[in-house]
Design a protein around this nucleic acid. Sequence first.
DNA 1: GGCGAATGCTTGACTATCTAAAACAACCAT
DNA 2: ATGGTTGTTTTAGATAGTCAAGCATTCGCC
Lengths: 153, 153
Amino acid sequence: MATHKRPRIDPLTVEVVELIGTVVARYHEEYEDAAAEHALTGAQARLLSLLSLEPLPMRRLAQKLRCEPSNVTGIVDRLETRGLVERRPDPADRRVKLAAATAEGRRIAGGLRDSLDFAREPLAELSDQERLALRDLLRRMLGESTGAGTDGG
Amino acid sequence: MATHKRPRIDPLTVEVVELIGTVVARYHEEYEDAAAEHALTGAQARLLSLLSLEPLPMRRLAQKLRCEPSNVTGIVDRLETRGLVERRPDPADRRVKLAAATAEGRRIAGGLRDSLDFAREPLAELSDQERLALRDLLRRMLGESTGAGTDGG
DNA sequence: GGCGAATGCTTGACTATCTAAAACAACCAT
DNA sequence: ATGGTTGTTTTAGATAGTCAAGCATTCGCC
């Protein structure tokens, strides 16, 4: 009964998996906290951070956030109500609406970035050499598909 | 203007931070997908996984999931409706309700664990020695506060 | 030039997650 | 016994997410 034919995993792999789980959990916690400090939800913070780099069509936002466009409509609505984001027409295509961060929106996004100490603090524990080693290991683990934005267009 | 007095960060640290962000994103994606394969939401999957180890009081669940107890009520309700979880009285304290996974719930939790290939697949890329190095780096990064469940009672 | 299909966004209906506040029951100390 | 504390649920309300339908615009094609 319950023949869980789970491929045998060595304890080391299990431990690494658990460590990664811990990193993931802590990262999220810190992110949500940082967002909350600026009266943003996680989803709002992610969207606003994207827009602080460049204006984007709603459709593009949905792709980057991996959700339905109709969902983006709501999130942008709430940010627009608060004056952090605005919708602009796309001169090249009148169907498209470009969401863009306002000056205030960019200010908040900057503050958010600064609050995101998660990455800096624990990394400070590591020497340059160790950071280098960590980078290489993570790269290999991610299989070079680390184009950081290569989410096929 | 906007004197973002952001402590200068070296490019290596920035890159490592981005890599960790990618790991976090992929982990979540995989987790949600695995949950969806078993007709569970992320929150339901996390809760059920906890209960597959041992029955827990609602209050304890809320602590582990870092949310309000009233929230746990709803999630357990939905899982109970589907017969994956049941509420039992705590013989030692009649106020307490112990949430416990049913046999079917444990079965699903097992399947969920098996689907969670995220950790195994990319880790297979690494040699034993590299895994060891990665473990040590992650441990140091997390500052030994990796008691994996030492969420003070 | 115009017609139909495809594209971009929004709306509406519905579910899940989450919080805060209030209600209720049971425990515990005095 | 009384009263304060603790554990759970209920209620109300917000956000986030899906899917299907609707509307406007663009594009392919004749």
